[in-house]
Amino acid sequence: MNTMLNSAVRLTLATWLLFGLAYPLAVTGIAQLAFPRQANGSLIAGPGGAPLGAAQVGQNWVGAGWFHGRPSATTDTDPKDPSKTIPAPYNAASSNGSNLGPTSQALHDRLFTDRKALLKDLPGIQTLPADMLTSSASGLDPDISPANALMQAPRVAAARALPLEQVQALIATHTVGRTFGVFGEPRINVLSLNMALQSWQAAKPQQTK
């Protein structure tokens, strides 16, 4: 009995040191040397030196002049009552999905409220791309589908007083296809599209009205 416990404890400590400490620390060391950018979250440098985002983490977009990401179900602690949570879209410190099922009244209400708000900016539209009304799994989805971006293009172009064809061309250059033409879905990273939009307009101020 004693020898058994003795061996079990020694196995525990030996594997703990190897797999719980040495292995993750070794991977960290190699990662920081070989892939420092990715290992630290693929941050994008901002104007003042502070990063303006992580390339793969979605941001919350407000206003007609920006392409919007998907609905996000992330929340944050309510500052007034720490036992409650309040909606906080794209809270990258607390990922979450809505977890609402297909017979949920709450999902129904959200879909129709969002639809109404969306269609205000999209006259004449009846059907929406699947990713436009549905919330993502992580609440941090960085991407939208090409159909989603193209539907938003007239709104963005009008708000920025840009020719629609140029905004559409920008979408086309930012569309990432399936990997090897097979895996995953065609998509557009909203942050990189909006960054391109901003810098492109800044470089050609004479083209805006």
């Binding site: 609402l100 129709f112 639809r115 059907t127 699947a130 009304l133 549905t134 993502s136 589908s145 065609p186």
Partner: peptide
């Protein structure tokens, strides 16, 4: 709710609630 469920080259279609666009 007027969601286009048919998959196409420009959008995934289907039940995308709780799913990510890249997948």
């Amino acid at each position: 709710a007027g969601v286009s469920l048919q998959a196409g080259p420009l959008q995934p279609g289907g039940n995308m609630e709780g799913k990510e666009v890249r997948f």
